[in-house]
């Protein structure tokens, strides 16, 4: 009975600490990331602060230097408001043009220096139908012969 009481008290204390920490994060998480427009609208507020920006990778803006392991690209929401991002690190597998990303880092003048690059994939799933079609056509062509 005594060990059980100790166990319960210990568990409750640990649990309380974790819940408190989670609730602290809960306040931050309501704004998990900002949009490019929000960041550019008030540059003074975000200067020298570690923030996250979520947006899409602008098509044709990706520059991947495999030797120096440096990645640069522009992020945007609407194709008009752009922020250039610089990231020293490996390009994630799912990183693509037009893909949603969340970058964490700091604004340095007009450019954003990212320390973390996360891919925000969409809820849409697709199967490569092109591939299947070409297979079917291939079989058809064999049967025709």
């Amino acid at each position: 009975m005594k060990t059980r009481t100790k166990f319960v008290i210990g568990g409750a204390v640990i649990l309380a600490v974790i819940v408190a920490l989670s609730l602290q994060e809960l306040q931050k998480m309501t704004v998990f990331f900002y949009t490019p427009a929000e960041v550019l609208a008030s540059p003074g507020e975000f200067e020298d602060k570690t923030i996250r920006i979520g947006a899409l990778v602008q098509k044709g803006s990706v520059d991947w230097n495999a030797q120096a392991i440096q990645l640069s690209f522009k992020i945007t929401e609407d194709g008009k408001v752009l922020i250039p991002v610089y990231y020293d690190g490996v390009k994630p597998d799912l990183f693509r043009e037009g893909q949603g990303v969340v970058v964490e880092g700091k604004m340095n003048g007009p450019r954003f220096e990212a320390s973390q690059l996360l891919v925000k994939h969409s809820e849409e799933y697709t199967v490569d139908t092109e591939h299947k079609k070409s297979k079917e056509e291939y079989y058809k062509s064999i049967q025709a012969q």
């Binding site: 649990l15 994060e25 809960l26 931050k28 998480m29 998990f32 799912l94 973390q116 994939h121």
Partner: peptide, 24 residues
Amino acid sequence: TWGTFWVWDARLTTTLLLFLIFMG
């Protein structure tokens, strides 16, 4: 897929909270 095991976003944090509530 995302490039990380864990982030403190709303979905993940509230799910962790559910787990902790029922530990309690």
